[in-house]
Design a protein around this nucleic acid. Structure first.
Lengths: 301, 301
DNA sequence: CCAAAAGTGTTACCTTTACACCCATGA
DNA sequence: TCATGGGTGTAAAGGTAACACTTTTGG
């Protein structure tokens, strides 16, 4: 790394690495940067938030958001985070073993005294996880050695939180409620295939309102974003948190022709399932934020 | 400042100040943190963006967003930024001499190579400025010695930008368009008193749509957020960018009684002006983000 | 067999859209 | 006096909200 002091800007200085001391030197103080994730999980009925029990001071024993420091640079060739999104993805993966999850930054929290150690600013993210992955996380955290240092909490009854994490969660919920009313973000809290009731439960859990079942369904279908899916040989029970059955690949789905009335085939009426409509290959040179859905979805009022 | 190495967390270290070298030491590399402001101004007709011509490398001579480094800490007792919002406010004040302006962070830009000097992440803000303040800034930047290193640009025809600032502006416009459709943010681009046409111009400039004059007015009034204002002795011309007349305190306004038809008083019809309705003392223990308006305003579709 | 969930359609009301005429102002 | 901007109302079309009965499913 460059070791000669350039002065592009009076207020500004490159970083230097002191090989002897193994320390990084700056002429001006620098804040540490972290990413914290408010991970929302949906069990089919209720919204949950994943929290970590802190094993170290400060706030040892209290609960906190999954998060960690941005890997800024490393003269020794270690891996770095190319963006703060990388930091968030890494932390999410560490705690849930999931990738390809909807992840979105929503606000920077930067109060000077928010961390007692040094100046730390954090970029707060929301992550959204559907029922299948929700259950996977439950199983894995149960199985782990250091049992239950990660845990899903009911979003309405959280424990006392470390740092300013209670405030971050409050704003995350507000952000989610805002986004869900203008974008089709809700589908990230569902599996590929879902019932109308599940979709409605997501909306009701997040907005705190209740909707008429029939009006909700009509409006959801009007958006044209849903495909009906005919489930074969499947009596899938409504998902409950206590279900410890592994449900994998027991629902084989195929798109029904819009014109073809499913009543012709089925001897009895079945519970309907839906999937998100795949638009006409929307490869619009985006950064491909994996798993995210960005079309406009001005839903319900 | 504490000079003994505490190890709350294996991955983490306090900062140390080396008195001899006048440098700050960290065991892990730290990014610099900046705030950049996309300052939108409205001249009564069109949206403008305030840019700064860079006098220093890198990108010397190119145009950039007003912005600067967060003052993180100072063992010598210098002033610090308590939050990143403070940083943004300071930069805004430096460039416009304005305070009490609507200011809102909307995204962190953190690509590892976005600054050629060292790792810098920036918290991007939007700021919104009404016609009166817009003109004040025009006058002051004209008058300044280092003439025209700050300049309003038409938002549709910007010059080549330094760093990743073109991308930041693009996202700022998208954010503004989103916000204006769900919150009463538009009023921050107007003066205390404004005509319906001005309000409509703001919406049309930001959304890129056009609206029927009469339907727009009905919907704006339906929100109940507007008070009609009777302007006295005032033939205020529509504001144009070329106006170099100082318009200050020539419009004395008072709230009209909702029941009292203004036709009784006025001998001739006058152009109507409006102001934002003052709700019933909404002192809800907020941080009083000066000048911001946060009620819901689900406007126009 | 019963209770709870889910499938379906109609009507009254409200909102939105589209559109035309008149008056005021200033060139 | 002419062109432009701005004030105002109405009617048709479309969307929303409220509501009940039947079938299916699971215990």
């Amino acid at each position: 790394m460059n070791n000669e002091k350039s002065t592009y800007n009076e207020r500004y200085n490159d970083q230097f690495y002191d090989d002897e001391k193994k320390e990084y030197l700056y002429r001006y103080p620098h804040a540490a940067v972290t990413a914290d994730c408010v991970i929302f999980g949906f069990d089919g009925k209720n919204l949950k938030i994943l929290l970590i029990e802190r094993g170290l001071e400060p706030y040892k024993g209290m609960w906190a958001l999954p998060g960690g420091f941005m890997k800024v640079a490393d003269p020794n060739g270690g891996s770095i985070d190319l963006t703060i999104e990388d930091t968030a993805k890494r932390e999410l993966k560490e705690e849930t073993n999931l990738s390809g999850v909807f992840l979105q930054q929503f606000k920077v929290f930067s109060r000077f005294d928010r961390d007692p150690r040094e100046r730390v600013i954090t970029v707060a993210f929301i992550a959204l996880i559907g029922p299948n992955n929700y259950r996977k996380v439950v199983e894995e955290t149960m199985a782990g050695d250091d049992a239950a240092n990660a845990m899903w909490w009911n979003e309405e009854a959280l424990p006392p939180m470390a740092f300013d994490h209670a405030e971050i969660i409050k704003e995350a919920k507000e952000y989610l409620a805002e986004q869900i009313s203008i974008k089709p973000v809700a589908f990230n809290l569902l599996d590929d295939t879902f019932s109308m009731t599940e979709l409605q439960n997501v909306y009701e859990a997040i907005t705190g309102q209740t909707y008429d079942r029939r009006n909700f369904q009509r409006k959801a279908l009007q958006t044209g974003m849903l495909d009906e899916v005919t489930s074969v040989n499947c009596s899938m029970a409504p998902l409950t948190a206590s279900d410890d059955v592994k449900i994998e690949n027991i629902c084989f789905s195929s798109c029904a022709e819009p014109e073809e009335k499913s009543t012709r085939i089925s001897p009895r009426k079945r519970k309907k399932f839906f999937s998100l409509h795949k638009g006409p290959k929307n490869n619009s040179s985006d950064d491909s934020e994996e798993g995210s859905i960005k079309d406009i979805f001005n839903f319900i009022k």
